[in-house]
Amino acid sequence: MNSKKSKKIKVLAIALALAMTAALLASCAAKEEKPAGEGQTLDKITVQTLWVPQGQFAGLYIADARDYYEEEGIDIEILPGGTDVTPADQVENDVAQVGVLFYSSLLTYQEGGYDFINVFQNFQGSPQYLVAKKDTGIATGADLKGKKIGTWGAQWQVEFAALLGKYDLGDSDVTWVQQDYTMDQFINDEIDAASAMAYNEWLIANDEGWDESNTNIIDLNKEGTAMLEDCLFVKRDWAEANEDLLVRFLRATKKGWDYAIQNPEESGKLIFETGNSATEEHQIKMTEICGSYVQPEGATAGDIGKIDEAKAQQTIDFAKKYGLIKGDIALENSIDVSYWEKASS
């Protein structure tokens, strides 16, 4: 061993030690950085969304960006969703107080023993399309026999099961193919009909040259088999203990959606800057389309978030008929409109 080598090793040792200390320090610093919130009077609420920051959750992001929550005395944190944790579990574990879920999917948690209630219905219908290239000849649910249909999982598939059921078709009449949240399989003809959210995947397909001119859309709302999607849910006991806070939160959220619907361009830009999850143009379109489900034609700004009991009941009925839930769920145990009503008065 010459001294040159041992010197080199000493330098290495020091460098390593330094790097490790730096990493430790940096991680400590990162943790302390969290803002404590200046006003002690603000009540903290964390919302867990379903997915990345995007126009789908415009009401929340706009209410945050325009300080509607702060005006109601709320210190808001919006946690974007991801692939490996569900909003239901985050709310159950008190990581978040409010979560976003499909109402259909919320039903499965209610059946599984999670004591949640739906307090605010974002989407007054289903923005989920089933799309097929025109040359496949698929124009309605009746044409799906023997076809390959792309699916994302239980809560999406059940709406298509209801569509098939309307035409007396069942699971065995079609082939389900797992779709990977892109439109690649559709574009490459690996599947005949693809799942596509009107506000997201459909726009991606449009970008790739597939639009109304060469593609058929099966709109579940027009087929009458739609189930309610995005809603806001909370733990029942949390809601009872924090009624005033929840009402204030819903009021601000409602205001956020109203602003987003009236100013989709500005809102889309704001969300783009928050999340950078899609292009600015995409976020603007997404906000606009989602707005059309939050406040459909004929509804007023005052109706935003209202839970339509007939539609909710239909969602429960379909969920039961097509096997998403096994038993019965009583509507009055599943939704609670009182908080929304107080927020709207």
Partner: peptide
């Protein structure tokens, strides 16, 4: 997060 967003989002 970049990977997920880029995979499923539009345009990034």
């Amino acid at each position: 997060s970049i990977i997920i967003v880029a995979l499923y989002g539009g345009g990034t």
